[in-house]
């Protein structure tokens, strides 16, 4: 379905994840983050860029992957994106919610 995020029309699924990454912009990310009560810092952007690159190379995301990323450790990941970190971070990054159980 279509919705307006940061004055841009984007396609999202029922959980609010972008379904077309081409529509993603940093402004969209800022708006989704704000909605999740997260203020994006340079550290957040490093993680977001990492997640987007992993997604581009079709590499499935999991918390174990994060721990081996060399970009962020699990503890900091939870601090940057409190509550459900991988769900929040992928939503902000404009990529699908990971379906992994680990």
């Amino acid at each position: 379905m279509e919705t307006q995020i940061a004055n841009i029309t984007v396609d999202v699924n029922e959980e609010g994840y972008l379904t077309n990454f081409a529509q993603w912009t940093p402004a969209v990310a800022e708006a989704i983050a704000k909605d999740l009560n997260i203020m994006l810092t340079p550290r957040h952007w490093e993680v977001i860029t990492y997640l987007q690159n992993e997604h581009k190379s079709d590499s499935p995301l999991s918390i174990r992957k994060i721990s081996k990323s060399g970009v962020v450790d699990i503890k900091e990941f939870y601090q940057l994106f409190p509550n459900a970190p991988l769900k929040a971070a992928t939503k902000i990054a404009g990529i699908p919610k990971p379906a992994s159980c680990i």
Binding site: I63, D73, Y78, S100, I102
Partner: peptide, 18 residues
């Protein structure tokens, strides 16, 4: 194969996750 950590690594993940 399904990227499951071993027991010790899993404990570290759990701890780091709070």
């Amino acid at each position: 194969k399904i990227d499951m950590p071993d027991v010790l690594e899993f404990l570290d993940i759990l701890k780091a996750s709070g």
